[in-house]
Amino acid sequence: MNIFRLAGDMTHLASVLVLLLKIHTIKSCAGISLKTQELFAIVFASRYLDIFTDFISLYNTLMKLIFLGSSFSIVWYIRRHKLVRRSYDKDQDTFRHYFLLLPCFILALLINEKFTFKEVMWTFSLYLEAVAILPQLVLLQRTKNIDNLTGQYVFLLGAYRGLYILNWIYRYFTEPHYVHWIPWISGLVQTLLYADFFYYYFESWKNNKKLQLPA
């Protein structure tokens, strides 16, 4: 494991913790897209099918359990928790996220490294993760006042993807056969989706102003 990968995992972990902290302590999910959270839960469920079959390391297994547990509990909170549910902006969060599932699945059936069930599901999770943030970005654009925690959550998620790209570059030069076009291209697409958000995030940070995205 290299420093970029570790930093990427840690920002990813931090993003999830920030979100859970917000939901759990303030009992509010204002500004958070349930659609994106549902997609993330599907992403982890389909990617970590190997959790009981392939042991990589204790770190790996623990992190997988954390991401699975946190993504499903966030969805549970927004859908089922009495107070949190009330703060959910259903009318703003209108992205048709189900329409992302089928194209990603078909693409995974067509373009994969190996045509096996686990591998296709793994590839599907990569394609789906690349676009899973879209409902959240649309919701951010509609939200007049983005609160700090929501802004930090999206920023940390974007940072995680950016750090993973550095991790791939590092691994490509240090590990002899490390060439994986599918995660690289989908990861790059995913990171590019954050570019616009990053721009406004840094602008607001530089000017010490509240984060607001242009409509």
Partner: peptide
């Protein structure tokens, strides 16, 4: 699991 496998990533 080989060293150069993307499946060891999260």
């Amino acid at each position: 699991e080989t060293e150069d496998d993307a499946h060891d990533e999260l």
